[in-house]
Design a protein around this nucleic acid. Structure first.
Length: 350
DNA sequence: CATTCGTGGAG
DNA sequence: TCTCCAAGAAT
């Protein structure tokens, strides 16, 4: 029993010592040793952006968001379209919708101050078990246990757990909880995630320079790169569709706001057909449509998409059956999700 | 517990 | 070209 406690204690100490020397410089991070109090708004925003998204992709979005909306109340007061447009390209757009919902709850019902406990954070839109734990630890110094993909990998290797994910999650969480220190829990959480991102990587982990190399069961067994095991994924089907880019003679584009739920929910887009196994026509209005040479290829989380693009020029008095016309000075291609921007780029290149 | 939900970089 | 996968949440 005494040995186990010493081992547990040493893991956290080894991780914090490693973090003190190797912490990456990130825009949302307070460096170890810096006693500046963390801003819960910035911790929250970064954690939501980092959900299933790489540090490299998040960096510039985080800087733009915090420059444009320095506080949660600023964000809460922003028009929906502005926030969705700023999020465009980052993916998983339900995050942006929930981000706004959460900001408005915090601004309207909490006086602009985030709650500081795991349970109350968990109750907010877009904050799940991981983000509630990360905010508790990083923003509020509480010894909560974070379990993200990095921590899962580090724990599976440290304890050489061969049970495949996601079934292994409860056991991995128990391992992670046993290691979480009362001291500097925020730095510790970031240390384990940094380790997973830079040393204990999925494919070829750098075990030789790992601060836990002497006590990692998988490293000792020589199978670190084979862990964690995962249940195999389904193959992605291919769907097809047609998308319509119409520009009025005054330059205005015919566009639509996608419904809040479902794929690309809440985002700006071009009108078009459903996306199904076989392509189909669904022009938004009667016009002299021209088939654009080429096609748009895009891969979502669970299917490949091939889009045929049609273009048309419409008379100045044209009125849409659905959607709306967006004047050229109000149309920013950067407001589009990537698949819609690809269609725009294809049309513009002709 | 399984499915839905983006994107871009790495290998 | 193709698969994997990254600081997950909601349903």
């Amino acid at each position: 029993m005494r040995d186990a406690e010493i081992t547990v204690c040493n893991v956290a100490e080894a991780m914090l010592a490693w973090y003190d020397r190797n912490a990456r410089d990130l825009p949302w991070r307070i460096p170890p040793g810096d006693d500046t109090p963390p801003d819960p708004y910035r911790v929250w925003l970064s954690e939501v952006m980092l959900q299933q998204t790489t540090v490299a992709a998040v960096r510039e979005y985080f800087l733009r968001f915090t420059t444009r909306w320095p506080t949660v109340s600023d964000l809460a007061a922003a028009p929906d379209a502005d926030v969705m447009g700023e999020w465009a390209g980052l993916g998983y757009y339900a995050r942006a919708r929930n981000l706004l919902k959460c900001a408005r709850v915090v601004a309207d019902r909490h006086g602009g101050t985030f709650p500081d406990t795991y349970d109350r954070l968990l109750a907010l839109p877009g904050i799940g078990p991981y983000t509630a734990a990360a905010m508790s630890a990083i923003a509020f110094g509480r010894p909560e246990t974070v379990l993200d993909g990095n921590v899962e990998r580090v724990m599976a290797r440290l304890y050489e757990l061969h049970t495949p994910l996601p079934a292994a999650k409860p056991v991995l969480h128990a391992y992670a909880t046993a290691l979480t220190p009362r001291n500097r829990p925020g730095d510790y959480a970031q240390a384990v995630m940094d380790l997973g991102a830079t040393i204990c990587t999925p494919k070829s982990p750098a075990c030789g320079i790992c601060p836990l190399r002497d006590r990692c069961a998988a490293r000792l067994a020589g199978n670190a790169a084979q862990l964690p095991k995962k249940t195999p994924k389904k193959p992605k089907p291919t769907r097809r569709g047609t998308i319509y880019l119409a520009q009025r003679s005054d330059g205005a584009w015919l566009m639509e706001r996608r419904p809040d739920h479902g794929l690309l929910g809440g985002m700006l887009g071009w009108p078009g057909s459903d996306w199904a196994e076989t392509a189909q026509d669904a022009p938004p209005l009667q016009a002299d449509w021209t088939l654009l040479p080429g096609e748009v290829r895009h891969t979502f989380t669970h299917f490949h998409l091939i889009l045929t693009v049609m273009t048309a020029t419409l008379p100045a008095d044209s009125a849409p059956d659905s959607g709306f016309f967006l004047a050229p000075d109000q149309f920013r291609p950067s407001d589009l999700p990537t698949v819609m921007r690809k269609a725009y780029d294809l049309a513009r290149s002709k």
